[in-house]
Design a protein around this nucleic acid. Structure first.
Lengths: 220, 220, 220, 220
DNA sequence: CATGAATGAGAGTTCATTCAT
DNA sequence: AATGAATGAACTCTCATTCAT
């Protein structure tokens, strides 16, 4: 059975090229950093010649921008959909966010973006701003909504939501970052599932309203 | 009779040079990354000429190694001393570790090292290994001891200590990293003290053995 | 019944292609120089794709040769015809040569060729030689003949014909060159007609045998 | 007998370098054009390495600017001095300008600048403007003054001075240009002295007021 | 000790040229 | 016949490193 579409014709390649190139670039930028990555290596990894890169991206910086821009599209609708699905069960919602993030971002090549953006933020302020506005802010908002939902439902105690959101995100980001930095030094590297379970354990226990008495957990 | 510090000034400068150079290098490496930092800029920031750098460090990589090596000295004794001082009060110990780290490391130029090492770990595996062995492992051990102390004292519940140590470290590292990356995008950036208080709040509440009834599931 | 020019249009385009391409190339070579002209721009100016150029010219240098070769065809018969027409009136002949040259060459796109050839002569000696032999030498010969005619007729005094020919040509060439170089800097640029009239004025007055007395110094 | 100054010390080289480099660049830019000249060749011709160029000039274009800028300094005072010296003898003044120009500019490496500037004017409009304002305009002014002086003295007839200035300059410029373009094709190339004599001959005869009658030469 | 002029390997970028469609 | 995606050699420019002063 033949696929009905023309197989690997010129046009087909051309359409796929940008994504192939940004994928190759992402991998190398994450591994080596922007400055230490040679465009020739990016091209080679994508199976093309150095010059071909310039048919699709005007400069190394353009390529970098494209890499970052593509890294956000998937992130966005995922979480917001979860919000609707698990509106009634904040703890379950938190679990879904955390494991969903790992499945769709953290464990994929996109998981390298946090490391990359952190390393290059100071060198590319405008890209950093873009990433901040389009990714970070939105993820924080998602988490904040989850926490507030839990508080409204009386499941979570009153906490500094703004701070907690950033705190809760940290172990997730560090998990992804770790995999692209010290993982190789870390002989007995921990299993992500176990790490995420422990994270959820700490967070839920840390946020949960104490049982028994109906009072606020912060009261002495 | 010569003032005793006039000749000393010259001598002192000479002795202080390496530290001045690594300080300058640290600042720039953290800001721009290793590859994107020009030795000329490092020299200029330290107030010397490019060639002078090579009187003290054989190469750019040597300089990098020195920067990392110096970044560990302070880390080490601080915590272990704390361990002895607060052996009887694990919650207080945790608080001292966290705020002590911020005061002595996180808020100082050394606070840039996590960002730097994360970014360059893959490019310099042996330096990464060194940093991992000498810094990361020891900090983890310190925290692990604190947790185990708390468990032994019945203050903390039974948890996955290996995982929790890494999880607890994450918000601290991210605080330091943030200050050297997205902080400038983050108009309403949170206050470190507030952030650390919230961190401690989550951790303690998350680790604490539930009060009153002795029948939490984790209890032995 | 088909309109007879519909099929012709296609055919005609095909036949006209080389000329369209050399015209586009001439314009850009003149404006930017050979090395600084991109074949892609030439193709775009001619309304074809880059690859099409290679259907007609084997290389950039081939294209350059073609441009130069075409630049000579018109030059040649013009003047020699004039020679016959104005054989009896050397002053009129000179005027016709000068203004004819301006009308048919200098003020047309071909007027850029002097600038182009001057700029590239050293880079393409063989093309320079070709242009020299086929254009320069012939124009000089034409002018020399005009001068000699005038001398024979007793209208012009005895001068160094070889030198005067080159001298007389200079203002013409410079007029054409100027239009493709400094013209844009030259706010109060002079009108070509006025310039050519003044040129003719100087030349004729400079060549003319003094009236009345037969004893001008140059006369034998 | 030792020269009293330190021979070829570091400092001495450094002072001489820019001029050595612009001299080398001038020669190659004139020969090949700006775009076709490789900086490596410029460096080699000046006896330094590629990188050294960048210690003195920030880019190829900067180097080009410097080349052009240096080409004007000598031009300026020469002529104006002549103006004072030969104020009383316009014909002699003209002769001095023409032969002085040849000796000090035309026959030296600076003689390549006209060709270079003509070729590159369209590519570097601002440099062209600079050269136009600082060189061309001033030379024209000098010549115009000479003509007007001659007219005031009754030696030259009334002519279109603006046009004549440009016309008179043409043979000079073409002489210089020729030497850097077609000279090699021109086996029987004319001797500059003879060419300049003929030029002066044409100009003076062309400008001179007819003898005998005191009337304007243009009158019929 | 300290300097900074000089180097040259290496990276980003351009563009003439080719060739499958 | 015409296209334009792909190539890779060549060029500009950078910067770690050296060394005469």
């Amino acid at each position: 059975m033949q696929a009905p579409d023309t197989p690997l014709t010129h046009q087909r390649r051309k359409d796929a090229r940008p994504a192939e190139l940004t994928a190759a670039a992402l991998a190398l930028f994450v591994e080596r950093g922007f400055a230490a990555t040679r465009l020739e290596d990016v091209a080679a990894r994508a199976g093309v010649s150095k010059g071909t890169l310039y048919l699709y991206f005007g400069s190394k910086e353009e390529l970098f921008k494209a890499v970052i821009r593509e890294g956000i599209v998937p992130v966005i609708e995922i979480g917001e959909a979860l919000l609707e699905t698990y509106r009634d069960d904040p703890e379950h919602l938190l679990r879904e966010i955390i494991f969903g993030w790992w499945k769709m971002i953290g464990s994929t090549p996109l998981g390298g973006i946090p490391k990359l953006m952190i390393a290059e933020a100071a060198n590319f302020p405008e890209i950093a701003q873009f990433h901040y506005d389009e990714v970070i802010v939105r993820i924080r908002r998602l988490l904040a909504t989850a926490l507030e939902l839990g508080q409204a439902k009386g499941v979570f105690r009153q906490v500094d939501v703004v701070a907690q959101v950033q705190i809760i995100l940290s172990p997730l980001l560090m998990l992804a970052i770790w995999g692209h930095s010290f993982a190789c030094c870390d002989r007995a590297g921990i299993d992500p599932q176990r790490y995420l379970e422990a994270t959820l354990d700490l967070i839920l226990n840390g946020l949960r309203k104490p049982r028994g008495n109906g009072e606020n957990g912060d009261a002495p």
